[in-house]
Design a protein around this nucleic acid. Structure first.
Length: 219
DNA sequence: CGCCAGGCCGTGT
DNA sequence: ACACGGCATGGC
């Protein structure tokens, strides 16, 4: 299925961000939020000079709510972003490069301990901001996997991740990270186009892999 | 206008 | 352990 997606859509350029720290901001802002809305927030932050660790460090939590307004959940997201920068300063002297030197499992635990960081946000930061080879599970993957009856609809995050891990294993850490990057990006693409709440399977590159029978809306 | 978006968290069983 | 609603805002 990975091969079919790659063949259909080609190489995606992901994560859509100019810097590692911008990836982190996007990871928080996109929680249950359309990327279109995140883009407007990023534009606001850029205009205010807030796309850097120093920028976020300087602004108050309350003032940060304003530029990220288009992404919603502004009270929680502003607090989460400030907490992350506090953590980065305390633990890694404000450097994502230094943070990236630590073992993946340790970093994941540290991230999950932060407010507003769940498994997907932690893994997105690990992969796209820190370059660690972890597979990122999101709602789109859950939909694809459920529709194709690869796992039950109530599968846990770890089960979905294990499925992804099986598809991205490479000979080197870098190769695995590249596959993790690519496949997640492709899943989002096919998810947006074909795997919404109501299925739109016409022209879907994964159609040959669908089980027999009718598809139902998810909820 | 109503539905939904690249989750996370506190609360109730 | 696990389901369930709230969280804010805007695009379609």
């Amino acid at each position: 299925m990975y091969a079919a997606l790659l063949s259909a859509y080609g190489t995606r350029k992901w994560w859509p961000a100019d810097t590692a720290f911008e990836v982190v901001l996007g990871a928080f802002l996109t929680q249950a939020t359309a990327w279109r809305s995140v883009e407007r927030s990023i534009a606001n932050l850029r205009q205010a000079g807030l796309l850097t660790v120093q920028g976020i460090r300087r602004i108050s939590e309350e003032a940060l709510r304003q530029p990220i307004r288009p992404s919603g959940f502004v009270v929680r997201k502003a607090a989460s972003i400030k907490s992350f920068v506090q953590f980065l300063d305390d633990r890694y002297a404000g450097s994502l490069d230094r943070m990236a030197q630590q073992p993946t499992a340790e970093l994941r635990a540290q991230l999950l301990a932060l407010p507003g960081v769940g498994p997907e946000t932690a893994d997105a930061i690990l992969l796209y901001a820190l370059g660690h080879p972890v597979f990122v599970v999101d709602e789109y993957l859950r939909r694809v996997v459920t529709r194709h009856q690869l796992l039950p609809a109530n599968a846990r995050y770890a089960e979905l991740q294990a499925l992804g891990d099986g598809a991205i294993a490479g000979a080197t850490r870098e190769e695995t990270a590249r596959h993790a990057n690519e496949l997640h990006a492709l899943i989002v693409e096919v998810g947006k186009r074909h795997c919404g709440v109501a299925p739109r399977c016409q022209g879907c590159p994964l159609q040959p892999y669908l089980p027999a029978g009718d598809l139902k809306p998810l909820y």
